[in-house]
């Protein structure tokens, strides 16, 4: 039985799948290179057997994790991401295995910001960050137009105030 909570409407860009695939490939590629290097060095210099076993296990896990996070996760994550804001709350919903619903009242929003790394820039996407007094939440991979509109909308609704209590 799924929890029935009104979902926000906004979806993130379809290109997010490609971006995540690329970034996860790069990350896992680097990790695999490191493990391969360690295993080669281990064979060369005759490290303890248990250390080699651990390295092989970690390497194997990395491959499994790569398969999951390159081929499976990005699609589902993109499909399940929702965001939105009404007069009073910013709402986010995301997650593959565990679905998270987050609610941030406008009155508690301290700042909104847009960020763009090299990969995102290539695809013309932005990550939008909503910061409260305690934490911050990111909406990944929004197209430029939508990102800017949403940012303006939140900053208008939150009327970011000078005063804190």
């Amino acid at each position: 039985m799924e929890v029935d909570i009104r979902e926000p409407e906004g979806r993130i860009s379809k290109k997010a799948v490609t971006v995540w695939r690329l970034s996860n490939s790069i990350r896992h590629g680097i990790m695999l290179l490191v493990f391969a290097g360690l295993i080669i060095a281990g064979n060369r210099f005759g490290w303890w057997d248990w250390a080699m076993t651990v390295l092989w296990i970690l390497g194997g896990l990395t491959i499994l994790s790569a398969v999951y996070s390159i081929f499976i996760e990005p699609v589902i994550l993109q499909r399940t991401w929702r965001y939105g804001a009404d007069e009073e709350f910013v709402k986010l919903r995301h997650g593959v295995i565990t679905v998270q619903h987050q609610t941030v009242p406008m009155t508690k929003v301290q700042y909104v910001g847009l960020e763009q790394g090299p990969l995102l820039r290539k695809f013309g996407l932005y990550t939008l960050t909503v910061g409260t007094m305690g934490s911050n939440h990111s909406i990944p991979a929004l197209p430029e137009q939508e990102a800017k509109e949403f940012r303006n909308r939140i900053s208008r609704l939150a009327r970011i105030r000078e005063e804190d209590e």
Partner: peptide
Amino acid sequence: VIEAAVSQSWLQKRFGVA
């Protein structure tokens, strides 16, 4: 309360808890 969150894992969904 400055933020509220509800989450439900795959296992929790099977048993209707959150």
